[in-house]
Design a binder for these strands. Sequence first.
DNA 1: GGAGCTAGCGCG
DNA 2: AAAGCGCGCTAGCTCC
Length: 569
Amino acid sequence: MVIFDDIRSAAVRTGLAAIDYETTELSPLEGKLTEVNIAVPGQSWSIPVAEPMSKWLAGVRSLYECGAQVVHWKSFFDQSFHPKYGLPLYGNVHDAKAAFWLLEPQDWAPKGLKDRGELEFGVKAIRYHEVDQRSLRQREQYGKQDAEWTLKLYQLAVPLLKQEGLWDIFINVYPRLTPIAVEMRLTGLKVDRTGLLKLKKEFLQEQDDNLHKIRVYRPGLNPNSPAQVADLLYKELKLKPPHPKFLEKGKAGHESTAADAVKYMVKQHDVAGLLLEHREITKLIGTYIEPLLDQSASDPRGRIHSEFNPIGTDTGRWSSYGTAGEGMNLQNIPAKTDRGKRIKKCFVAEEGNRWSRADYQQMELRVNAQIAHERRMTQAFKDGRDLHQELADAIPCKRADAKAVAFGYAYGMWPKKFAIKYAYPLPEARRFRAGYFRMYPDLQAHHACTEMLVRDDPWARTLGGRKFYLGFLPIEGGERMRKALNTPVQGSVADFINRALVDLAAWRDIYGVPFRFLSQVHDEINLEVPDAYAELVAEMLERIMVESAPLPDVPVEAEVTVGDRWLMK
DNA sequence: GGAGCTAGCGCG
DNA sequence: AAAGCGCGCTAGCTCC
């Protein structure tokens, strides 16, 4: 592998190397590496996997460890192939995709390497489908362009990141998140197949009983067809929705059968409740139980391997998803209804391990209190009072309504929508909003301020200084204002949990504590910890989460639960 | 037979 | 005139 010696010398000389892999599949569990593409300033290579593999791998490894700054495009994808080849997960690799995401996280920005390159360089990219995979020359051209563009885009982004004050987070946070996201995917979440099979049987029976009861009112009805359900509810049974809005016909030419409308019909006809229940069960079986059973059956350890993307959203939150039948979104596992909870209880720790879960407590509210300098809310957190109950007493309304008020009106919802969503008369919704802002005058001032400021200053910022350009949104219409209210809050929480993950990983590296990262759910971290270390890790987990979220005025709390599964009660 | 859309809904 | 934010997945359905 003489060629790697040359490449390494070039990398050392220039101090910079872009690396990109070609693989047989998108899955790091199934797929194999076929080529490594490398670019240094002024030169590039595409090197097919060669025998002996150990020599080839040593060559690749030497590039990471020669002291040059290594950069990838979508580092968490490329590095997810490392462990099966005995390569380490590197926590100091810069990611050109993350660079552009930090500069322009919005969804209108080009996401792919090719799209971004075409935009920045004004040159047509070689697209994957244009490449004749049998032609070594074409493969080489394609691979070299990927590496070259990764390198050039990185060089383009560096001064911009520094100029925008994003350099620190780019080199100190995002590279260290990559190994964590990869670890989550490769480790996977273990599920209790016996429990899931039992649930499936039970739910299918319920679903069937339910279907028969529904079909008494209309034989042959498919409850999963909104068109058929609308016809039954509105045309045949003439049921009334909570608001005329639901009578408006959509693209498919029928009235809305959304849950908010059907819930309201429960008092009018038995079929409404049956339909809602049928929908719930169908959703749980189809979206969760069946994929969980399928995927755990095809994995040797019965685990679910999902992708986690630390740069998957506009605001800085992570996203989670399945790729080509492998993995699924692990950030929307049911937790609210009784049936849903039974599914979540089927996520279990491996024998000899504990499931350690930590949640920030009411974190968005706390961050909002901080950002708005809301004195009353801040004091309530300091005193440890029940905010929602306090608001409910003041409005007055039910506690559950106060909660809805706090989440809706905080981010610019209007009474009309509140009234429709929660089936209240408009004056009642207005009264709630008035009560809310009477309770929190500083928050009202913050809304007024934001509305004014966002006209001239199109930037929104998190407490940690990450920023979002909102200038592409029209000033009128409210969307810019609502995003200006929400992004700093959601984005700050995202920054905090990222910091917590990084610090937790660093603590583990230093002391060699043997836990595994399982998942991240926006304000929650899940770990699998050998029994003997469970207590120590739980203590540290809580401490790191709290310390990673330094709010100057508002106290922060994280709650840790340790058990044999994700959800205990 | 697959792509792409809509409606609906799971989570924070 | 119209006005919470952020995601990903499924079934039904249309279209090519």
